[in-house]
Design a binder for these strands. Structure first.
Lengths: 124, 124
DNA sequence: CAGAATCCCAGCAGATACTG
DNA sequence: CAGTATCTGCTGGGATTCTG
């Protein structure tokens, strides 16, 4: 760690860099969770809504729009009645979901340590 | 990918799970950037403020508090006048910053593809 | 079923000023 | 230098209703 990487990670730290915008999209709470949910496979709208507990339909469709616009998710429509719409990660989406899953798994492994730290901090 | 992992990544997808809270902290825009900045080494308050372009002192100190409380950052104080305060990643902080750096680097690599996707989407 | 539209509010975040 | 305090506005996001 620390300064060994060939590419500096100043990108998002720079205010005017387009990276910052992408970073903002990535730090959008619901988008992240939707991406995580989709990393397990293709899902339809309502299935997705159920999978990401607590998300409203509004936020879901809004998040999906951003994800589709950023090319991280594809939207498939079957023109039947009633319509069937499903969402799937693109290559881009899969790539970025990988480190995200790592974060998710890391939380699972470390949640106890974090809670201990919080308790200790709050006691002070 | 897709369902191969032993541990499911449902953690953050579950509403009542403490993981969700941690996930929210992790997806906090400024906290993320501060963590990223610190992954390059120890920094003092104002150095940090300069490094993370656009952050206000208020948001910086607020983010730092959360990070310290979650045990991802340690605060060192030298009781001199004027005081010198520096911030450093803990073991926990280093662990999460790793996938975060990956995301950051991924954006750098893929920013062009993302912009192309956006342009294409907006044209439709 | 998959969303769009509308209304509305809490709290995140910016600007400014002050302090140990 | 390293913050805290206060005031305010902006918008992310919830609840509800309506439609192709």
């Amino acid at each position: 760690m620390s300064r060994t990487a060939a590419i500096s990670n100043d990108g998002p730290l720079t205010a005017d860099c387009p990276c910052r915008v992408v970073f903002d999209h990535l730090t959008s709470r619901w988008s992240l969770l939707v991406l995580l949910a989709l990393s397990d496979g293709v899902l339809r709208f309502h299935a997705l809504r159920d999978r990401v507990e607590g998300i409203s339909e509004k936020m879901l469709s809004q998040s999906l729009k951003t994800l589709v616009r950023d090319g991280r998710v594809v939207r498939h429509v079957e023109p039947t009645v009633p319509p069937k719409v499903s969402y799937e990660l693109t290559r881009l989406g899969e790539e970025v979901s990988e480190p995200l899953r790592q974060v998710s798994e890391w939380i699972g492994r470390r949640i106890d340590d974090i809670k201990i730290a919080q308790t200790h901090y709050d006691a002070a």
